[in-house]
Structures are given as structure tokens and as C-alpha cells.
């Protein structure tokens, strides 16, 4: 068995995975706020457009990573939709754009039923974008650390958590009662998500301890990297969890929640980068020399 750390995917792909997940979650949670939590139509319109802008920003990094970025239009040729997560991802991304914009237009003109339908479909697509970023890595059978169902779950939970963080930052700056109400909902939801994320990370690393040489090597790489242990686990998960828990029992502690949000966002980015970085190929002996 030859173990070789993968080199092909680096910062570009990690940046794409992060902003894709963040944008999808912002879109979905922003529309949810307007449809179910009585936030006004401008909140819905602006967060959905913000989500789409973030996805677009992420896509730039994916295009830069193509061998020839000028051929990016081929990405819309999704003949491989039956089996490829890039093709499926393109569908949910395109869906997010179409239904996100239709939702924003309907909200602007106040057409309630149409807005609801478009909003729910856009939410579904946005949620799809968050999930697919993990499934993308998952399909690589040669990298056992990625080839586990834990990965898409981890990325989905983390993406939703970063979406919550961004919304908290926006809501903290608003003054209405509805904003206050949704702020507390998102805060509680984020506490749940971060706790889940800690549990998944723990289970993930514990599973690595039990075997498969390549998975063990990936886990060692992560545990030996302070960006992971201190940067992601301590500063990106545990600290914001404590801050948010503290802020949730004290009223008017939005500053704390704001700091927590920024840490969650940085942690989410680190997680994408580190998981990609720690991918180790398990080649049959002789392939890599």
C-alpha cells in the first residue's frame, strides 16, 4: 500500500466549498425568516440575493481551478447527472439562481402564493448546495478519509452553522422585534449545530483511530496540525459554543454572539481547507513508487 497525500485540490477548491455552503445556507435561512418568522420582505429579498452573490463568489474559485477557465460553459453540459456530483451540483446551483431570483421578484411585487412556492423551492436548492459540497469529496474512492458518509453530514452541519453565523451578524444590526425573535431562534439553532459538529468530529476521528492506514494517516495529519486542533476545534467550535450559550442566557449580549459568529465563519473555512488538505490516497503498492 502506498500512502500519498493529495496535492491537486488546495485553497481554490476549499474556498469554493466554503462559500458554496455558506451561500446556500444563507439563501435557505434568509427565505425561511421571511416566510415563517415574519421578517419583512426586504430581509427576504436581500438575504436571498446575498446568498446568491456568495455562491457566485465561490464559483469564481472553482472556475479558476479548471485547466482552462475559458471552457467553464461546458459545466452546463450535465450529461453525467445520473452519476456525477458536479453535474448534480450544477443543477441545484442553477436552481438556486432561478428560484432565488423568482422568489425575490415575487416578494418585491407582493404576490404571496407564487412567492411561497418559489421560496420553498429556492430553499430546497440552497440546502442542496450545502449538502453537495461534502458529497463532492465523498465520491473519491481512492481517498478513504473522504469516502465515508460522515463527510457530507459534517459539511452540511458546518455550512448551516456558518449560514446561521452570517445571519446573526445581520440580525444583530437590526432593531425590530421580529429580528430579535429570529436572532434568538438562529442562535439556539446554531448552538445545536455546533454541538452536533463537535460530536461528528469526535466520531470521525475516533473511527480513524480504529484503522485503515490511509484514514489513520489523514487523522494524524489533522491532529498534528495546530490549525485544526487550536484553530478549528478550540477557536472555531468550542469557543463560539461557549460564547453563544452565554449570550443566549443573557439578554442584550449580541456583541458576544457577534464575536462567536466571526469565529464560526473562520472555523468553517478552516474545516474545508483542512479536510481537503488531509486527503490521503491509498494506492495499491507500486503505483506511486
Amino acid at each position: 500500500m502506498d500512502l500519498v497525500q493529495q496535492q491537486l485540490w488546495g485553497w481554490n477548491i476549499a474556498t469554493y466549498l466554503f462559500f458554496g455552503g455558506l451561500g446556500g445556507a444563507t439563501l435557505a435561512l434568509g427565505i425561511l425568516a421571511e416566510l415563517r418568522f415574519n421578517l419583512n420582505k426586504w430581509f427576504g429579498i436581500l438575504t436571498s440575493l446575498l446568498g446568491l452573490a456568495i455562491i457566485s463568489f465561490g464559483l469564481i474559485w472553482l472556475v479558476i481551478d479548471l485547466i482552462n477557465p475559458l471552457r467553464f460553459l461546458l459545466a452546463f453540459w450535465i450529461a453525467g447527472i445520473g452519476h456525477s456530483w458536479i453535474a448534480r451540483g450544477m443543477v441545484v446551483i442553477t436552481g438556486s439562481y432561478i428560484f432565488g431570483v423568482l422568489y425575490a421578484i415575487a416578494a418585491f411585487f407582493g404576490s404571496t402564493t407564487f412567492k411561497k412556492w418559489m421560496g420553498y423551492i429556492a430553499m430546497f436548492c440552497g440546502f442542496g448546495v450545502t449538502t453537495y459540497t461534502g458529497l463532492l469529496l465523498n465520491a473519491n474512492v481512492g481517498v478513504p478519509f473522504w469516502h465515508t458518509p460522515a463527510l457530507p453530514i459534517l459539511f452540511t452541519v458546518s455550512a448551516l452553522s456558518t449560514g446561521c453565523a452570517l445571519l446573526m451578524l445581520i440580525l444583530a444590526a437590526m432593531k425590530s422585534d421580529e429580528a430579535e425573535h429570529y436572532f434568538h431562534f438562529v442562535e439556539g439553532f446554531d448552538i445545536l449545530l455546533i454541538s452536533l459538529e463537535l460530536l461528528i468530529i469526535f466520531a470521525y476521528l475516533d473511527f480513524a483511530r480504529l484503522g485503515n492506514a490511509a484514514v489513520m494517516k489523514s487523522a494524524h495529519l489533522l491532529m498534528g496540525n495546530p490549525l485544526f486542533t487550536i484553530g478549528f476545534v478550540v477557536l472555531g467550535l468550542i469557543t463560539p459554543l461557549i460564547l453563544e450559550a452565554f449570550a443566549s442566557v443573557k439578554h442584550s449580549a449580541k456583541g458576544l454572539a457577534g464575536v462567536a459568529s466571526i469565529l464560526v465563519l473562520i472555523g468553517g473555512f478552516l474545516l474545508r481547507y483542512l479536510i481537503t488538505w488531509a486527503g490521503v490516497f491509498q494506492y495499491p503498492h507500486g503505483i506511486a513508487g
Binding site: I67, A75, L136, G142, V143, F281, A288
Partner: peptide, 23 residues
Amino acid sequence: DLCLGCGYCIEACPYDARYEYEL
């Protein structure tokens, strides 16, 4: 003619059989 150049296949091949033919 159909290759987007995403490199996904390079990462997916467990035999390191593929590479980028660059500009």
C-alpha cells in the same frame, strides 16, 4: 471536446492514471 477540465477524475482515479494536459 467534452472535457470541462475540472480534474475531478484525476482525484477520483485510485490508480493515479490521469494528469492535466495544460495550455
